[in-house]
Design a protein around this nucleic acid. Structure first.
Lengths: 193, 193
DNA sequence: CGATTTTTTGAATCATATCAACGTACGTGG
DNA sequence: CCACGTACGTTGATATGATTCAAAAAATCG
């Protein structure tokens, strides 16, 4: 239990066995079935969710009911509506499971205590979010400056495992495209041959 | 000197006078003329730049020479090619001044020392980057899910001061549009009447 | 004022969305 | 194990929206 979480943690900041035990007190395991929500728009986001196993997505839903996928999270990734988590305002995103999944939850109270009591936790969080920030900046750059084909190639190169595990229309959603358009982009690239 | 920087710092984590003095050792002031670069693509990004006064932009340039603006930074904001700064790989972004500006520079060595010696600095950095991450996530959401008009309205609502200070074609670039398209969007919204 | 930059406008072209239909794969219940 | 229903991907025709290129109007700066 928590293997993936502590592997991720130790890759960034290495913990002693005692520190690991200390951290464990603040973690809650949670299993999620495919299609089950861990957060719904309008609710306050109570957890940072670390994915031990499985896959989730966060997304917003517009007036017509169209979903736009903000983030995918596979094993080793963290997902949350961070703004809602930090401010306790209602969430603007939904998060649900793409597959049966196992999560490690960190509540707000745990998060705050860990920040206070264990400097290495703050470092871990800082490094995590720095990585996430850099990735997002690349995503923005890609969206505003590259033609579709390039954007799609970048995505596949960066996240080959996501491309294999999630349906294509969700990748379209993540890219801000209709499924038909992504299908045609792929055709033009003639993938599969 | 450094007033804006320490105001920003103290808003997030309050420092004693002694701590401020300690931090000052690691800061370097720098003036930049309009159009002057602080970072060029291909060079390693050596500083985190805090804007005391003025305005800068970071941007990438594609094969045709078209600029895509990644970020604006006005007073109180921080700008850098964080990936290059952290990894010492060549930068993929350019950063230059939109107006005559005054910066506070933090070198890599200073950054590392401050992280090590002053826990409050790590907290400051963590909070800064968390805010930047949340803002970027909103920007992505806007780009992939909203129609142009809405995206433009959001931008104006969020950064009214940027809209007033930078030419419209740069806002188009930031949004990933041609200047003509943004001009027509504005016309349709009939702004100015 | 003159020179440069910025914004606007128009017309033609290209890209993406939309709507509808079809084919395929997959999983579930019979 | 088969049959059916559902979800997914593809294709085509058309409509809508954005880009491009060229030019003119407006604003800014020295």
């Amino acid at each position: 239990m928590y293997e993936v979480f502590f592997r991720s943690f130790n890759e960034r900041v290495s913990l002693t066995k005692e520190e690991e035990e200390f951290v464990k007190q603040f973690l809650t395991p949670k299993k999620l079935r495919k299609k089950q929500f861990i957060l719904q728009e309008g609710d306050v986001c109570k957890y940072i969710c670390f994915v031990e196993k499985g896959a989730l997505k966060s997304y917003s839903v517009d007036a017509n009911g169209t979903e736009s996928i903000i983030q995918f999270a596979l094993e080793g990734w963290t997902i949350s509506d961070l703004y809602s988590f930090l401010t306790a305002e209602p969430a603007t995103y939904n998060i649900d499971a793409l597959e049966d999944s196992e999560l490690v939850l960190i509540s707000k109270a745990s998060h705050e205590t860990l920040l206070e009591k264990l400097p290495k936790y703050e470092t871990y969080i800082r490094l995590q979010i720095t990585g996430a920030y850099i990735a997002l900046q690349k995503r923005i750059t890609s969206v505003i400056s590259l033609p579709l084909e390039e954007r799609y190639k970048n995505f596949i190169a960066l996240y080959p495992n996501i491309a294999q595990r999630v349906p294509q229309h969700m990748i379209a959603s993540y890219m801000g495209l209709t499924p038909e358009t992504l299908s045609r982009v792929r055709k033009k690239m003639n993938l599969g041959k």
